[in-house]
C-alpha cells in the first residue's frame, strides 16, 4: 500500500511542479524589477527562448542519428559514432 502511494507521489511530483510553475504569478508585487519587464513581447521572449534552447539539441541529435543510420548502412551492423560507444575491448 505504502509503496503504491509512494510511487503515485513520485509520479505526480513532476506534473505538479510544472503546474506550480505555470500558475505562479507572472509578476511579484514586491519585486522592484518585475514590473520593469512588463512589455507586450513577453510571449515572443518565452517562445524564442524555448526555440533557441531546443534548436541546438535538435541539431546535434539529428546529426548523431543521421550518422548512426549511415554507419548501419555502411558497416552493416552497429559500429557507428555513438553506438560505436560500445564496450571497450577487455584485454586479459
Amino acid at each position: 500500500m505504502g509503496a503504491v502511494r509512494r510511487r503515485l507521489r513520485t509520479r505526480l511530483a513532476g506534473p505538479l511542479l510544472a503546474a506550480a510553475v505555470l500558475v505562479a504569478p507572472g509578476r511579484a508585487l514586491a519585486c522592484a524589477v518585475c514590473a520593469a519587464g512588463e512589455t507586450n513581447n513577453r510571449a515572443e521572449f518565452i517562445l524564442t527562448t524555448a526555440f533557441m534552447t531546443a534548436l541546438p539539441l535538435l541539431l546535434v541529435g539529428g546529426v548523431v542519428l543521421y550518422l548512426r543510420a549511415r554507419a548501419r548502412r555502411v558497416h552493416g551492423a552497429p559500429p557507428s559514432p555513438t553506438s560505436a560507444l560500445e564496450e571497450p575491448r577487455r584485454v586479459a
Binding site: 510553475v21 519585486c31 518585475c34 527562448t49 534552447t53
Partner: peptide, 17 residues
C-alpha cells in the same frame, strides 16, 4: 544550453521563466 537566462534574473524577465 538551458541555463543562460539566469544572468537576467534582475533584467525584468518573467518570474515564471
Amino acid at each position: 544550453f538551458t541555463v543562460w537566462a539566469h544572468h537576467q534574473f534582475v533584467a525584468g524577465i518573467d518570474p515564471r521563466m
